[in-house]
Design a protein around this nucleic acid. Structure first.
Lengths: 130, 130
DNA sequence: CTTGAGCTTCCACTTGGTGGAAGCCTTAGG
DNA sequence: CCTAAGGCTTCCACCAAGTGGAAGCTCAAG
């Protein structure tokens, strides 16, 4: 099947699919006309990538997961470890964003937001804590 | 003052300071020997950048904020609008991460994580919902 | 036969810097 | 006075994870 069809079936844009091939995440065959020819297994890999990227795994992590996916003798512990460390990372990001949110929200509430030039937000950014 | 001192006072690495100059966020003078020469006003701008980047504003937003900072006739409403839209963006990111976290956490709990190859995480990523 | 869509490759651009090389400048020590 | 270390300069390359666009081939329909 052509890249357009593989794109529809995987939910990934053609550009992204070619990119994934570039970086060695899959290697579809080629038809006589030079067009890429995707098997159903290729489409499975693409959908796997689409899902795992969507879950926040980096491309390198996806490469690892794909390799584990293809290895019927893998140990589930290995997959779980990757997922758990990703979970920790997500928790860290959430905490960071919550802290940011609190600070910014405080500043926004302190600012009148009218035609006058006085602005606690700018004052804080400038480091003039009064 | 030299870039090293400005770096210490602003908390930004010299490389970053040069980069900010490259993209037009500040333009320090030059000493006779060709070294950049930072005024205290330059350091204020750098600290402003350090703070606002740390609060999650993009470089372009920082450029806007800096311009408002330097404009004594600005209206605080303009600053507040930028900060509020950033707040909305942060909220969106937090929600997204929370959803991710829930999905991933669910998968992690479902996985035995032992020497056996059976792995619900991989099965989910592959799209095999049973 | 021609037109348009789909496919190919390749190169550039994005964000926000970071790393390193090659070459001045300055300052302290021997 | 010479030298070595460290700081400064520029420039070029690289990171993630793609996206946009140009030039050119192929394929299917009218």
């Amino acid at each position: 099947m052509n890249i357009g069809t593989a794109s529809e079936k995987s939910g990934l844009p053609p550009k992204t699919i070619r990119y994934y091939e570039d970086i060695g995440l899959l290697s579809p065959g080629r038809a006589d006309n030079g067009y890429r020819d995707y098997s159903t297994a290729d489409v499975h890999r693409l959908r796997f990538l689409q899902r795992s990227r969507g879950l926040g795994f980096s491309v390198e992590e996806c490469r690892q997961l794909l390799s584990l996916y293809g290895d019927t003798h893998r140990e589930s512990a290995e997959v779980k470890a990757i997922a758990e460390s990703k979970l920790v990372e997500i928790d860290r990001k959430i905490a960071e964003l919550n802290a940011l949110r609190a600070t910014l929200s405080h500043l926004v509430h302190a600012c009148h937001g009218d035609h006058r030039p006085e602005c606690p937000i700018l004052e804080d950014l400038a480091g003039h804590h009064h």
